[in-house]
Design a protein around this nucleic acid. Structure first.
Lengths: 157, 157
DNA sequence: GTATAGTCGATGCAGATGCATCTACTTGGA
DNA sequence: TCCAAGTAGATGCATCTGCATCGACTATAC
């Protein structure tokens, strides 16, 4: 049961605000890295998400759940990525409305390349700021936020 | 001096990844809140940032430093917000190239209204997930990231 | 089975975005 | 003082975005 006193509510808002600003600060740096010359950061994010599904294939609507962009935007982004030869599509086997997407070898290769540069930038940026234990704390707290918010999404409507 | 062993580098990347996903999860929920019918979330963010400067007035380029959008986008966004009567502009006193912006009373009022709804959503979302001590930890860690990254921005180039 | 409501992804369209560039102004040296 | 280099913000343009909507397919109720 959450604390609903006024200072507690303020603390929650401040923590979110701070999380958001930290994300903005890091993202501004990441975006300017030369590794994102080849692919916009949002497009990289699609490739990255595709590396995270065990079968390699994902439904478009499920992919959309991990992203901030709208369904029509994803639809067109997938079209672009396909025309660049980075992903391919096929109809979903169990639902004739659905579309599944997966990385091509070229897409996987490009993701690895950009991802590696990505990791270097992040380590250069955050390494001097947080110690190992603190990184673990941050990972644990943010992981619970992601899980909790996603769960409440399923439970609500 | 940061830990440059391979597991430490991986941990840093995972912590960032997790922070980013948590931000996406929360933002997806926030964006759908009815309070953002009147103003896009990026436009709200401009108003919010304007409440944070002591004199009320800010230089455009300084405002830009807190945001993810590009300079031309901010320039046009400010134009739109001005035409809606939410902010006003004046030339910078000490630099004839510069422009300063500040909230109008209407802008301040709208920011308060949306901000209040904002805070309610955040508390509903995060309240059940993190306890007070954990929120404080998260606030402290993300605050240091923001500070650290911004500082290294000044020191680098 | 049929009808109705719901979901999936695509598309027309208006508007927002970023990149490159422009003008105006400021700064730092010779 | 003068000139080159740098910086602030605006603007043309191609592209990307979201909203509303569409057609196709699926699920639910009767």
């Amino acid at each position: 049961m959450p604390d609903t006193t006024e200072p507690a509510i303020r603390l929650t808002a401040e923590a979110w605000e701070s999380l958001f600003r930290a994300q903005v600060a890091v993202m501004r740096r990441l975006r300017n890295d030369p590794s994102f010359k080849k692919l916009a950061i949002g497009e990289y994010d699609v490739l990255f998400n595709l590396t995270r599904c065990p079968t390699g294939w994902t439904r478009l609507n499920e992919l959309n759940r991990s992203l901030l962009i709208s369904q029509p935007s994803l639809s067109r982004m997938v079209e672009r990525l396909e025309s660049k030869g980075l992903i391919h599509r096929k109809p979903a086997p169990d639902d004739q409305r659905g579309v599944m997407v997966a990385l091509t070898p070229e897409g996987r290769e490009l993701q690895r390349e950009i991802g590696a540069a990505h990791v270097r930038v992040i380590h250069t940026l955050l390494g001097p700021i947080l110690k190992t234990g603190e990184l673990e704390q941050l990972l644990e707290l943010t992981h619970r936020i992601r899980e909790g918010v996603d769960d409440s999404e399923r439970g609500d409507h």
